[in-house]
Computed example of a mutant assay.
Amino acid sequence: MASFEYNGNPSRVIFGSGTLSTLAAELARLKVHTPLFLSTPEQQGSILELAKSLGAAADHVFSEATMHTPIHITEKALGVVNAFGVDSFVSLGGGSTIGLGKALSVRTGKPHICIPTTYAGSEMTPILGETVDGLKTTRRDLAILPTTVIYDIDLTLTLPAMMSATSGVNAIAHSVEALYAANKNPIVSVLALEGIRSLARSLPALVSLPSDIDARKDALYGAWLCGFCLGSVDMALHHKLCHTLGGSFNLPHAETHTIVLPHALAYNAPAIPEAMRKLAEVLPDSDGDAIKGLNLLLERLGVKRALKDFGLKEEDVAKAAEIALSKPYPNPRPLEKASIQELIRRAWAGDNARADL
């Protein structure tokens, strides 16, 4: 075994069914009394109900979280923090809401409790991606890591089938890149493979029967592991492309990850034979071919496969490649402009991924 370095991120996790009921005790444990409750506009009703159940006033709810954590939304929320003496944050939702909670927590030093309702995995990472003037940048700092994560399987039961599918593939992407990260290690790789296995098994079941509690449990468990992997090692080409497409072209986060993942894997395949072999072992019916396994999984899930369906124009392909290559993340295969542009074109068109880039 090669030498390696492993640093575990400190996390407190509460996992199960009905665990939302532990929130009051968790706030008391942290000795905070005036949280700001965060959500997207779509989950405003849920966050208002949660705040009300804890005796909080409606003006302690901020429901304007949005994709890619634009700085102007963070600044608006900070105005509420300063106006009402907020001493902590409670985020209920997916990556957009949790990202806002991270942005506020790291700026103020106040505790942040996450209650995920999707499989995004952001709650397990000390990573913050923010968008300023159409450019999304990321930074990594342990101060960004949420204080407590409350996973309540019951909160995922109403997550629509297609949102479950794309959110779950987004989580899989975190673990796929962890297998060949520049600072990969065998501990994280074991967790990454277990996370991928759990999600690849459970996501097709969820699409068929969204109320399947056992599949929901497996998916949330897998998402936890995948998020942990993302927070433990570096990102590579896949995440750089998705950050570029999301931040600069306003494409939806989970759907973009879902579409780009097999193409980014195909690009890196020649440089990562061992990771490809291990990945194929945990993808159903891959026949030893991880790219085939991913293509088949996306086909079974019935997700959209083309970035053009979400607003990317063909003339944007070259610009996206240029932005992604301007400040690249570490990657196992050197980045070749023509091939990266072709990768994005295939993702734009909705082609099946293939290993000829």
Rank of each mutant, 00 (worst) to 15 (best):
E322D: 12
G231L: 00
L54Y: 12
S339D: 13
V81T: 13
R140L: 08
S11E: 14
V233M: 06
H60R: 15
R29H: 11
P70M: 04
E299H: 11
R333C: 05
L159I: 04
T158M: 12
A56K: 07
G109A: 07
N170C: 03
P146Q: 05
S53P: 09
D287R: 10
G94F: 00
N352Y: 12
V80T: 14
A266I: 04
I47F: 01
A280R: 05
L36A: 10
L203H: 04
G246Q: 05
G95V: 01
A143D: 15
T117K: 07
T118S: 10
C229Q: 01
L301Q: 09
G99T: 02
G45F: 11
E5L: 12
D351G: 03
T156V: 06
G85D: 10
D234S: 11
H112Y: 08
L104R: 00
M162F: 10
L283C: 05
I113N: 06
K337R: 15
R140D: 09
G195H: 05
T137H: 10
D287I: 00
L78W: 07
G288Q: 02
G222L: 04
K313N: 13
G121F: 06
L335T: 04
L225W: 02
A28V: 13
P160C: 13
D133G: 01
F89W: 08
V188Y: 02
E49D: 15
T158Q: 14
E322Y: 02
T40L: 00
A223V: 02
A200L: 05
A120D: 09
L38F: 03
S208D: 14
E130Q: 13
G222Y: 00
Y180W: 11
A51Y: 00
V233S: 08
D152L: 05
S46L: 14
L241M: 09
A347H: 05
L220S: 13
N183W: 00
A181Q: 02
L230G: 08
H257L: 00
T97W: 04
V106F: 06
V282H: 09
S88P: 03
S286F: 00
L301W: 12
I153V: 15
K337A: 14
V233P: 03
N268D: 13
N250I: 10
K327M: 14
L245F: 12
H68Q: 02
D218Q: 13
P284Y: 06
S189D: 14
S232F: 04
T138N: 11
I47T: 09
H68P: 04
N295C: 11
D316I: 04
L312H: 05
L220R: 03
E336H: 12
S17V: 12
P160K: 11
P210E: 06
T108K: 01
Y6R: 01
I340D: 11
A306T: 08
M67E: 14
D59W: 07
I340H: 07
S39C: 02
F89R: 07
E75M: 05
K31W: 08
V190M: 11
D214F: 13
R201T: 14
R354V: 10
K184F: 13
